[in-house]
């Protein structure tokens, strides 16, 4: 894992496809790129088979740009729509069995620390709501209780979109789906609260209709996970197929859902605030200067 793995072997350059050559020469490896530069450099994500207009794809695209060191990052995923795109990126991807992604990431993260010591190697889990909150729930929660140092990102489309539209733990109460025709009878799981109870150092919700916010949230989560502890991001990434959202209205839906039930929230532990401020120069957590005390009349 280093910049070397994206370079050409001697003599092979002319045989490589254009996309690969562009990636090596004009990709984000070893540079700092931001969301505002999109369209100006070769992205790590390549063409993939996800549906047209999928908000999850947009989120994954933004996430790949937000990784602080893409050349030193490994993504871990599980069954679900997301892995169709995550696996098509120039970032090593580990595909766990269904639900064991946080267990795999725990071992991977510890192994990388043993092998590389202090040199930061980031492990990022990106799995759907089924993989995180239903089938992988036990391993997700235990990895948080153990304070494993990696980032967990839930791509919450509120449905099992890959298998025909079954309800998941993250589906909203009353939602009628193809394979849940009577509507869901239970409330949406409160994973944010569970993450806080389990001791995550950073917990945030985000919707991809604000690319800069997605970038900032992911950057913070990955940096905190390097030393402080587990971090969790819950992203609303609508399924326009199962929820019948016209593709050109996906961002309109994201905006409506953000105003309704997915407002931006961010929890940062005191230790994480201190770490970001001291180690990476974040200024937003510095104590604001106290207002000067009002002069008391009649006293010198």
């Amino acid at each position: 894992m280093s910049l070397d793995y994206v370079k050409f072997s001697n003599g092979f350059e002319k045989f490589m496809p254009k996309e690969y050559r562009d990636m090596v020469e004009h990709g984000p490896f070893g540079k700092k790129v931001t969301v505002s530069q999109m369209g100006n450099f070769k992205e790590v994500l390549e063409e993939h088979p996800m549906c047209a207009g999928c908000a999850m794809t947009l989120f994954i695209r933004l996430a790949m740009i937000a990784f602080p060191n893409p050349e030193d990052t490994i993504t871990v995923g599980t069954a679900g729509c997301g892995r169709l795109a995550i696996s098509q990126a120039a970032i090593p991807f580990v595909y766990g069995n269904y639900g064991d992604q946080n267990g795999v990431a725990s071992g991977l993260s510890r192994g990388l620390r043993l092998r590389f010591g202090d040199k930061p190697k980031d492990v990022v889990v990106m799995a759907g709501d089924g993989g995180t909150a239903d089938i992988g729930f036990q391993q997700v929660l235990h990895s948080w209780f153990r304070k494993e140092r990696f980032t967990t990102i839930m791509l919450d489309n509120e449905v099992y979109g890959n298998t025909g539209g079954q309800e998941s733990g993250m589906t909203n109460r009353g939602a009628v789906l193809k394979m849940a025709p009577l509507g869901k009878k239970f409330e949406k799981m409160d994973m944010l609260q569970m993450a806080k109870v389990a001791g995550c150092a950073y917990v945030a919700t985000v919707v991809p209709n604000n690319p800069r916010r997605v970038e900032s949230v992911i950057k913070k989560a990955v940096l905190i996970a390097r030393e402080v502890g587990s971090t969790y991001i819950q992203a609303y990434t609508s399924c326009n197929i199962e929820y019948a959202i016209p593709t050109d209205k996906v961002m309109e839906d994201a905006k409506a859902v953000e105003n309704d039930r997915y407002q931006f929230t961010e929890y940062v532990s005191e230790e994480a605030k201190q770490y970001l401020t001291e180690r990476y120069g974040y200024k937003e957590f510095l104590a604001k200067p106290a207002a000067p005390a009002a002069a008391i009349p009649g006293k010198a």
């Binding site: 969301v35 505002s36 999109m38 369209g39 100006n40 070769k42 992205e43 790590v44 994500l45 390549e46 063409e47 996800m50 047209a52 207009g53 999928c54 908000a55 794809t57 947009l58 695209r61 933004l62 790949m64 209709n209 690319p211 961002m251």
Partner: peptide, 16 residues
């Protein structure tokens, strides 16, 4: 405004 480059779900599709 470059907004379309940031909101396209496909990578390197809308370029600037």
């Amino acid at each position: 405004c470059k907004l379309c480059t940031q909101y396209c779900p496909e990578a390197n599709t809308i370029q600037y």
